[in-house]
Design a binder for these strands. Structure first.
Length: 350
DNA sequence: AAGCCGGGGGA
DNA sequence: TCCCCAGGCTT
């Protein structure tokens, strides 16, 4: 049975007015799609508006610095999206003469554009017949067709993808793709879906078998890694010592403070702590505990402690990664939320 | 194939 | 609390 006509009819009556829906400009669509990866529309919307105002064209984006991009991205998470966007904007200038591609096969080669995003841009901007497969589509298909293969398994990806490809055939891909995603977001919601007013209810497998709350199936994620970050906040001559984070860990290229990470079972054991801080600073620091925070990420729980460093440390010079920054500069550099929250508190209250 | 990468909002 | 969001990259 084909539900496409009903989904499209539902969409035309219920869709939200969103700025990236009124254009076929692939650059603008790309901007919205990257921002909306793993991000709700309401959360991404203000970021979309700020990015478009800052970079009206892909040429403007390509001319930006990484710090500018990360500053605009600040607070949105998954910061590699921002770094990949800059890379891709520059690639579009160099490889495609500043014309943002609309073909799936071209898009898929760009950094940060995977299967979903290439399908979205090529169908929205050029009506290419490609099926989008995001969290909404997984959910709608799983419930309507009663598919119980876990959607986060390789087998699930395969079977749902095959069905989605089949369903987009013969459709206006631009409208249908947006329709099924909007339907999943507003009607066939993860929690408390609106089955009573659902136009698909008569033929919905999950509804007719009391399985709406069970589908889609998902494999349980593993336990999160627990870490302890001990940060040192040093001030000297009105400047704050900060550090730019390196590759190979979370928050790449963002700024935090000099850091001692201690073993995961506990807050810093005195001996371990003293030894590591002495290694970091080259002397025994005078520490004053300030704030503790628990910060939860997708795969990690981080217990964060901030210490004021009461020694004068005039010999700790700026390096490539360690930088003495004025308070204004410390506010300005891009930082993860847990650091940003502390800095705002620290610079206003102390 | 599995692990990693943020942050926020709803229930 | 737990779950999920217009996913993608690395190993």
């Amino acid at each position: 049975m084909n539900f496409q006509p009903e989904i499209i009819a539902w969409y035309l009556n219920n869709k939200r007015e969103l700025p990236w829906r009124n254009t076929s400009d692939a650059y603008i669509i790309w901007l919205s799609e990257i921002i909306l990866q793993q991000t709700r529309v309401e959360q991404g919307l203000p970021y979309f508006n700020r990015f478009l105002a800052a970079f009206p064209t892909v040429q403007d984006f390509a001319a930006a610095t990484e710090s500018e991009v990360l500053k605009l991205w600040e607070g949105l998470g998954y910061y590699s999206r921002g770094r990949n966007m800059l890379h891709t904007a520059r690639a579009v200038m160099e490889l495609h003469g500043g014309i943002f591609p609309t073909a799936y096969d071209t898009l898929i080669q760009l950094k940060g554009i995977g299967d979903y995003t290439a399908a979205a841009i090529s169908s929205f901007a050029a009506n290419e017949s490609r099926a989008v497969l995001d969290g909404n589509v997984f959910r709608v298909l799983a419930r309507y067709y009663g598919m119980d293969t876990p959607i986060n398994s390789p087998a699930g990806k395969k079977v749902f993808s095959a069905l989605a490809d089949e369903l987009v055939q013969g459709q206006d891909a631009s409208i249908y793709n947006q329709a099924i995603m909007e339907f999943g977001a507003l009607q066939c919601k993860p929690k408390s879906p609106l089955c009573e007013s659902c136009p698909l209810r008569p033929d919905c497998f999950a509804y007719n078998h009391q399985q709406v709350h069970l589908l889609p199936m998902k494999l349980k994620p593993g336990a999160k890694r627990v870490r302890h970050f001990n940060y040192f906040v040093a001030e000297h001559n009105g400047q704050v010592l900060m550090k730019q984070r390196a590759a190979g860990d979370i928050w790449q290229q963002l700024y935090d403070f000099p850091l001692v990470e201690t073993s995961a079972e506990h807050y810093a054991v005195p001996e371990e702590f003293a030894q590591k801080t002495a290694e970091l600073f080259g002397f025994s620091p005078l520490l004053r505990p300030m704030i503790n925070k628990k910060h939860v990420l997708t795969h990690q729980i981080i217990y964060v402690q901030f210490f004021a460093l009461d020694n004068n440390i005039p010999n700790f010079n700026s390096t490539a990664s360690f930088k003495w920054l004025s308070r204004a500069a410390a506010m300005e550099v891009p930082k993860p939320n847990v650091i940003n929250d502390f800095v705002k508190f620290y610079l206003t209250k102390l």
